[in-house]
């Protein structure tokens, strides 16, 4: 088992090195000059050259890469051209809002997907199944900006129950944190929930057809116990994988939802970095997203091995 963890970690490191090279290369291939962008119409040619020099942009690319990656390893992702503040600081500021939204959205998604997917698998071609299919189709089709705006119009505007946007830290005011979180979490969670509903339905259907489910019923187990331990327990295995991908996607920022609800998340920050040609900030953000996906995938794989003893066995044996 520990050998397996080590191997997976090593793989992750190799992927990370590749991603960092790719991120660095793309940033430097994109047309546009960050210093000119930052200076705008102000500044003389001498200032421009001095700034270029200070940012290390005159060094060979390889040197620039190693400088960047070496600093990144110590947590120093450079300084934002735009704001002049350290990139790591800018990112860390956004982490609480992003994590709050991502976790709340995945909870919403699972609360939709598991019951709806399970019930429709248990009653295929029933009214519930039809409802689940139609609503998950709708959840996927309705654009999230439209849904977000509708929520704001109804719950913030007409009814006035919830704030229309913004973020309040959990430690500052837990009640306000939750009130601000509800609408963005539902808006971001519905699309993930719709994808997962279909997934839960098909994996529960598959689990239901397994011989061991019939064998469990033949033991005389209660229907509820058969469902929990022989159907859902097995159907959750593939859900861990797909749910992990959804979580990674939500953690790396849901740009549109963040913009609609004025949510200070990583997605919005990355978008601003793109618009402002803020190389170092964008590099830092993209690298972070890559790390998020790698970490989530690693956790999913380890969790999967924990949940499915056959995998533990195969890997220990191989």
């Amino acid at each position: 088992m520990s050998g397996y963890v080590l191997r997976r970690l090593l793989q992750a490191v190799i992927v990370l090195i590749g991603v960092s090279i790719l991120v660095f290369a793309i940033m430097h291939l994109v047309p546009g000059d960050p210093i000119r962008q930052a200076l705008g119409t102000r500044g003389t040619e001498a200032t421009y050259l001095a700034m270029r020099e200070r940012a290390g942009l005159d060094d060979p690319l390889v040197v620039q890469y190693f400088n960047w990656i070496g600093n990144a390893l110590t947590g120093d992702l450079g300084v934002s051209f735009r704001s002049g503040r350290p990139v790591s600081e800018l990112i860390l500021e956004r982490v609480p809002a992003t994590v709050s939204l991502a976790l709340a959205a995945i909870v919403v998604a699972l609360l939709i997907a598991i019951p709806l997917g399970t019930i429709s698998a248990l009653r295929p071609r029933s009214v519930v199944d039809w409802f689940a299919t139609v609503s998950s189709q709708a959840g996927l089709s309705i654009p999230d900006f439209w849904m977000g705006i509708m929520f704001i119009l109804i719950f913030a505007g007409t009814l006035g129950w919830l704030p229309s946007g913004g973020y309040v830290g959990l430690t500052d005011d837990p009640v306000e944190w939750a009130r601000h979180l509800i609408m963005p979490a539902i808006t971001a969670g519905v699309a993930s929930g719709s994808i997962l509903t279909r997934f839960v339905r098909s994996s529960v259907l598959e689990a239901l057809g397994q011989d061991h489910v019939r064998a469990a019923r033949a033991k005389g187990m209660r229907a509820r116990d058969v469902l929990t331990w022989h159907v859902l327990r097995n159907a959750m295995l593939p859900l861990v994988t797909v749910g992990g991908v959804q979580l990674a996607y939500l953690l790396s920022g849901v740009v549109i939802v963040e913009i609609v609800f004025a949510w200070p998340g990583l997605g919005q920050m990355a978008l601003q970095a793109v618009e402002g040609r803020d190389y170092s900030l964008l590099q830092g953000a993209v690298l972070l997203f890559a790390v998020i996906f790698l970490v989530v995938n690693l956790v999913v794989d380890l969790l999967y091995a924990k949940l499915d003893p056959r995998i533990r066995y195969q890997r220990a044996g191989s």
Binding site: D211, H212, R214, M221, N234, L307
Partner: peptide
């Protein structure tokens, strides 16, 4: 009824199926 039948399954009539690999839940 299903509940009455459940009491016969296992306790009255036990079953052994063809393929023990698939008839046992692999994750338990």
């Amino acid at each position: 009824s299903e509940d009455k039948l459940r009491q016969v399954r296992g306790a009255g009539i036990g079953m052994v199926f063809q393929d023990p690999m698939t008839s046992l839940n692999p994750v338990l």
